[in-house]
Design a protein around this nucleic acid. Structure first.
Lengths: 193, 193
DNA sequence: CGAAAATTTGACATGACTCAACTGGAGTGG
DNA sequence: CCACTCCAGTTGAGTCATGTCAAATTTTCG
C-alpha cells in the first residue's frame, strides 16, 4: 500500500519502532491531483508540505516580466512545497503545479507539529532531509556560476535521466536558467556531434 | 560571556530549560582563528560545523579554470561549514576561510550527536535553521536567473549592508556570479547617476 | 617607503537573449 | 477522418549583457 512507501522512505534516514509506525500511518492519508492542478499559487499562502507517491510536481516563480523560473521538480519519494511561505505564512513566491497526475500526502502545520510531538524522532528526519536539500541548492548556485548552459544541461541529464523524458523542454530550460530557444540550440549542437 | 550569545541565539528558535542550557554550555568551547586561516580546504574532509561569535568567514569553490565562486559569507551569530562534506565525510567542495580574525565554536560529528542525544530539542533547532537556509538558497537561485547583475548587487547591498564594508569587492563579485571587472563597472555606473 | 593586492578602465570577444517565422505533433470538433 | 487550432520545439538574424585581457591607478600593509 502506498503509505508504506512513505514509511520505507523515512526508515532510510531514521529507525522507527512499530508503535511509531502505526502512529504515523494513522495520521496520514493519500490525496490525488490531476495534471495541471496547482498545490500552491504564487501570492497565496502555502498551507502544505507534500510527500509524493507517484507523479511529478514543479515549483516555479513567475517574475515581473512574466518569465518562469523553475525552482524544482519533485517526483516519487520526494517533497514539495513553498517552504518559505509555509514557514512564515506569507504569500508564496512560487507556483507549485502538477505536471502529471499525482498522488501524495499533504502535511499542514498542525499535522506537522502533531507528528513532531508524538514521534519526536521525526524532527531528526526532517533535519536530515532539509540539510541534504540545502547542500543540493548550494551546489546548484555554484554550478550556475561556474558552468556554461550546455554543461549545466549535461549535468542535468546525468543527475535526472528520467526527468528529461517526463518534463517538457521549456520547463527544463527554465530550470537551467536559459531560454527555451537557447536550450533547443544546445540540443541541436549536441545532436550534430 | 560569549557562550551566552550562542544560548541566546538558540533560544530565538526553541525554548531551553536551565538543565539543557548548562549541558550545552558544558560541552562547547570557544576557539579563535586568525585572518586568512582555513577552517576547511577544498579536497579535505570537513570535520566541523562552526557557529561564529565574532568575525567573518567565507565559503567558496574554486573551479577547474581557477575561478572562485563564493557560496556564502558568515558573520556574527551564524553558521558555516561545508555541510555536504561534513555529512558524507567525502572531500569538501568548498574552502572555508576566515576573512577577519574570528571567534567561534567548532562542532564535530561526535559532539553534534552527543548534543542531539542529551538535548533532543536541538534536532528541531537545526531543522529550523536548515530550512531557513534552504529557503534563502532557493531564492538566490531564482534571483540569479531573473535579475541582472546590477539588480543582484543592489539587492545584496540592501540585504547585507554591513558586508559591503567588510568584504573585498572581488569576493562580492564572486558571490553575485560576475567578474570583479564587471562589478567594478556596475559601481561606476551607479556612482555616475 | 615600497611591494603586493585590489580596483578601475578600455577595447574587444562571446554566450546567451529577443523576436519573428516556421515546423510538427496532439487534440478537438464538425 | 479531415481541417483547424494550439502548444512545443526549431531555426536564423540581430542585439545585449557580461566576460576576457591588458594596462593604469589606487589602496593596503609590512
Amino acid at each position: 500500500m502506498s503509505k508504506d512507501i512513505f514509511l520505507a522512505y523515512i526508515k532510510k534516514h531514521i529507525d522507527l519502532n512499530e508503535a511509531e509506525e502505526s502512529i504515523i500511518l494513522s495520521k496520514i492519508k493519500e490525496r490525488k491531483y490531476l495534471k495541471n492542478q496547482f498545490l500552491v499559487q504564487q501570492g497565496d499562502v502555502c498551507r502544505y508540505v507534500v510527500f509524493i507517491f507517484t507523479g511529478c510536481v514543479r515549483s516555479y516563480h513567475v517574475d515581473d516580466d512574466g518569465n518562469e523560473h523553475t525552482v524544482s521538480f519533485s517526483i516519487e519519494n520526494w517533497w514539495s512545497s513553498d517552504m518559505g511561505s509555509f514557514i512564515t505564512q506569507k504569500p508564496a513566491d512560487y507556483n507549485v503545479q502538477c505536471i502529471e497526475p499525482t498522488s501524495l500526502i499533504q502535511f499542514d502545520s498542525a499535522l506537522m507539529e502533531e507528528l513532531f510531538e508524538t514521534v519526536p524522532k521525526l524532527e531528526r528526519f526532517f533535519r536530515i532531509i532539509s540539510q541534504n536539500a540545502l547542500v543540493s541548492a548550494q551546489r546548484r548556485v555554484v554550478n550556475t556560476f561556474s558552468k556554461t548552459a550546455r554543461e549545466r544541461f549535461e549535468i542535468f541529464r546525468e543527475d535526472y535521466p528520467e526527468l528529461e523524458q517526463r518534463v517538457p523542454q521549456y520547463m527544463i530550460a527554465s530550470y537551467l536558467g536559459v531560454t527555451k530557444e537557447f536550450l533547443s540550440k544546445i540540443k541541436g549542437q549536441i545532436a550534430r556531434e
